[in-house]
Simulated assay, not measured.
Amino acid sequence: MSQNLDLGEFKETAIIKKLKKSKSNNNLKNIDTAKTETTEKRGRKQKYATVEERNEARKKQQKAYRERKKKEVQSMKEKIKEYENKEVSHEEKGSL
């Protein structure tokens, strides 16, 4: 199989080096099985090791979010009260 391919076109990875040294199809099959056993999962690494750890982190995130929203609503209510108090005081001054 390696006689049919021009292996010079590929990067010098471990598999290509083995293919260059390989002289029989049996060796190629061994290389393929070794490759599949050693490859890691593709994509982004998992942030949390277990499902329980992920769930605990999610609970903390939700709690922090609720607290931020509660503070925001509270500050909005205070601003509304201040605004209403200014409106009332301006109306009283205008009527005098």
Rank of each mutant, 00 (worst) to 15 (best):
K77C: 12
E82N: 12
E53P: 08
A14T: 14
K86S: 11
S22D: 00
L28A: 10
D6Y: 01
K79Y: 03
E91P: 00
E87F: 12
A34R: 06
V88L: 10
E40M: 00
Y48P: 04
Q61G: 13
S75P: 05
K60W: 03
S22W: 00
Q62S: 07
D6V: 01
K18H: 08
D6N: 09
E56V: 10
K60I: 09
T13L: 00
R54S: 14
E37H: 05
E67D: 14
E72H: 07
K47H: 07
R44G: 10
T38L: 09
I16T: 05
T36W: 04
Q74K: 12
M1W: 04
E56D: 06
T39H: 08
H90I: 07
G94C: 03
I16A: 05
I80C: 11
N26D: 13
I16Y: 01
E72T: 06
S95K: 09
R44A: 09
D32K: 10
K23Q: 10
S95M: 05
E52D: 13
A49D: 09
N26T: 11
E37I: 11
E82Y: 03
I15C: 03
L96P: 07
E40Y: 00
N27M: 13
E92M: 04
E91K: 03
R44L: 09
K18E: 08
K23H: 04
A34L: 08
K69A: 13
E72W: 12
T50W: 04
K41Y: 05
